[in-house]
Design a protein around this nucleic acid. Structure first.
Length: 226
DNA sequence: GTCCAGGGTTCGT
DNA sequence: ACGAACCATGGA
């Protein structure tokens, strides 16, 4: 699997195209500002988007949805507003680290000047921003090309027989590295692909009871590709 | 009551 | 380096 041949590469590209075409999405990551994308990326960690959205609206109502205002708020205050998103004490600290990190970087305008790699490295330094959250912020907040090799993506690639990332903390990085070298995506396609992968995963494998047959037997879209 | 959701950190081995 | 516990709410 380390060296995918031209045929495998073509199959991967076709599979991605099929997913995008089959799951068209509109406004997959609704947000009114770049900062709101970043806040949402933290709040949605291990949480349904509906609950993260409720927390975002509470922050908006409290006029805390700007870096300067949030950076001056207390963790306790933030925790109170974001309660619907769960893990509020943890996420309050992460939001605070995010807002302070932005301020200390010279603001969003300065951050947006950084190259892709430098920006990603900067985001990863901040408490509460891991690889997946950083890539989501890059892709939807800063419009930089990125493949989100999250759980849905890794399961899809595994069941398609394209790449087996395995388990553990490094699975994300292994999958990301593989995709980066095998596939070149522009921002629009990368955004659409991630949304499609998640929708596909939720529809066929995320809900209980799990469908044992469909993805394993048909790969859902694989039969139209193979 | 139980399981899980668009993760990351921390703490045992 | 790897696995597991932990966070904490709302929905099915």
């Amino acid at each position: 699997m380390a060296a995918a041949g031209p045929a495998e590469l073509e199959r991967l590209a076709a599979a991605c195209r099929a997913l995008i075409d089959h799951y068209p999405t509109r406004n997959w990551w609704p947000a009114r500002s770049r900062f709101e994308v970043m806040v949402g990326a933290v709040l949605v960690q291990n949480t349904r988007w509906l609950n993260a959205a409720r927390a975002i609206e509470a922050l908006r109502a409290a006029a805390l949805l700007q870096p300067a205002a949030m950076a001056e708020a207390s963790a306790e205050t933030l925790a109170r507003w974001i309660r619907p998103a769960g893990c509020q004490r943890i996420k309050a600290r992460r939001l605070l680290a995010l807002a302070i990190g932005i301020q200390q970087s010279g603001g969003l305008r300065a951050l947006a000047q950084l190259e892709d790699q430098a920006l990603r490295a900067r985001l990863l330094r901040w408490h509460g921003i891991g690889e997946e959250t950083a890539d989501a912020i890059l892709l939807y907040g800063f419009k930089r090309p990125a493949f989100l090799s999250d759980g849905y993506a890794r399961r899809w690639l595994s069941r398609m027989g394209i790449f087996e990332a395995g388990a553990g903390p490094r699975a994300y990085g292994r999958c990301r590295q593989f995709m980066a070298q095998e596939l070149v995506l522009d921002v629009s396609d990368a955004q659409a692909l991630h949304a499609a992968v998640v929708l596909h995963g939720q529809q066929h494998c995320g809900a209980r009871p799990r469908c044992e047959g469909c993805c394993v037997a048909n790969y859902c879209l694989n039969k139209t590709i193979a």
